[in-house]
């Protein structure tokens, strides 16, 4: 899936996260994660995000995440929403999203 425009998903509220995606000229994923619980859960958050991006087939893009202590399921949902919006994707393949 290719990110073709800037997009945002989520909020800054507690237990949520804000995901911003933007196209990148280079063929790489530049992922930046900021979290209030970075020390305890930073590695876990990164793992969930990277897995979600891999599932979506994102190979290029700038992804910035502001996490406010969200559960894994919220992280997956927000990352997918931002990427699908940024890829202007209308056709969903639900089995690839779970």
């Amino acid at each position: 899936m290719k990110i073709v425009k800037e997009a945002v998903a989520g909020t800054l509220e507690s237990s949520d996260l804000l995901v911003k995606v933007a196209p990148l000229a280079d063929d790489k994923v530049d992922l930046v994660i900021e979290s209030e619980v970075m020390r305890q859960f930073g590695a876990q958050i990164r793992k969930v995000v990277e897995e979600t991006l891999r599932q979506l087939g994102v190979r290029s893009g700038q992804i910035v995440i502001e996490d406010k202590g969200a559960l894994d399921c919220a992280i997956r949902a927000r990352v997918q929403t931002a990427v699908l919006r940024g890829a202007e994707c209308k056709e969903m393949n639900w089995s690839a999203l779970s």
Partner: peptide, 14 residues
């Protein structure tokens, strides 16, 4: 609408 659908999709599997 799209964001809520995905949130609920994942919450249901939690």
């Amino acid at each position: 609408k799209d964001a809520a659908r995905l949130l609920v999709f994942h919450a249901l599997q939690n």
